[in-house]
């Protein structure tokens, strides 16, 4: 291949990349600009603010208050539990032969199709009977339970990308199925686990529906309920809403930056030893 063709290719990919970056950033820029506008200036969407209206951030922070801590207390353990449960279920489903594994897999996957809006009544009863209504552990349990299908699906497919020969070799070496899971499979799937951790952090952090049904007070209400609160029946306080959004994105981005460090090329040959 000639160098000019290669250069042209590079130029093309760069153009695509920068173009996409602009498309992705533009709405965010509008959001950030709005978050520093006063109510008077917000009536002109695209105009730049003449002053930094920090009151939006003050309003967002005072409104979010304790709910921010609740969100952290809900999200961190719930992410860990849901990944653990997904990995537990994904492992046998990726390795089991025969139809029983497929039936379980199929059943778990159908779970993803249940529209959550409709199961709120039975769910409320369940959680209430367990004494977990309006508690943070109740939220862990519900988020873990409703993550079972997705996390299983995700981990099963990620485990499937680890060559089966490694599994068979391990069993022959006298390494039991549990040790294999713990010592070999999980480390070899680090980037998958990290990706799932990021996705789950985002999903649980941003959950509104379960939070509204299953929490009732400051004891357990997460930050999404407060953010949604900036949009009232008739009015939307756009400035504080966007300020609260900017703030609430930070933890998820932190999780992203933390976990994506595991996205390093695996050395499968090395992991097998």
């Amino acid at each position: 291949m000639s160098t000019t063709l290669r250069q042209r290719q590079t130029v093309l990919t760069r153009t695509v990349l920068y173009g996409m970056a602009i498309l992705f950033l533009a709405p965010l820029v509008v959001a950030v600009i709005t978050s520093i506008k006063s109510p008077v200036e917000i009536t002109r969407v695209l105009a730049l603010p003449t002053e930094f209206y920090w009151q939006n951030y003050a309003a967002a922070i005072s409104r979010m208050g304790r709910s921010f801590l609740n969100s952290i207390a809900i999200t961190v353990p719930a992410v860990a539990f849901s990944i653990l449960v997904g990995a537990l279920a994904g492992y046998p489903l990726a390795y089991m032969r025969g139809s029983s594994g497929k039936v379980v897999y199929f059943l778990l996957l159908t779970g993803m199709l249940v529209p959550f809006q409709i199961v709120q009544i039975p769910l409320f009863f369940l959680v209430q009977r367990m004494g977990l209504h309006d508690t943070i552990p109740g939220m862990w349990m519900v988020h873990t339970a409703y993550a079972v299908p997705f996390c299983t699906f995700f981990m099963r497919n990620f485990f499937a990308s680890v060559p089966r020969s490694m599994y068979e070799a391990a069993l022959i070496d006298g390494c039991g199925p549990f040790l294999y899971f713990w010592k070999l499979l999980l480390p070899a799937s680090a980037s998958g686990l990290a990706a799932l951790a990021i996705i789950q952090s985002r999903a649980i952090w941003n959950d509104l529906l379960f939070a509204i049904t299953l929490t009732a007070s400051d004891k357990a209400r997460p930050v999404t309920v407060q953010i949604a609160g900036f949009a009232s029946s008739l009015q939307v306080e756009y400035g504080p809403l966007m300020a609260a959004t900017v703030i609430s994105v930070v933890p998820v981005m932190a999780a992203y930056l933390l976990f994506q460090k595991s996205f390093v090329r695996g050395l499968l040959g090395g992991a097998g030893k």
Binding site: M20, A21, F24, L25, A26, P27, L28, V30, A31, T34, V45, R202, N206, L208, T224, I227, A228, F230, A231, V236, Y238, L241, M242, T245, S248, V249, V252, M253, Y256, L257
Partner: peptide
């Protein structure tokens, strides 16, 4: 970071942002 950012935004805020867009 740029390509991942929008995915982290709550739905209410996505709706408000695109109402302006």
């Amino acid at each position: 970071i740029i390509f991942f950012l929008p995915f982290t935004i709550p739905a209410v805020a996505v709706a408000a942002i695109w109402r302006w867009m």
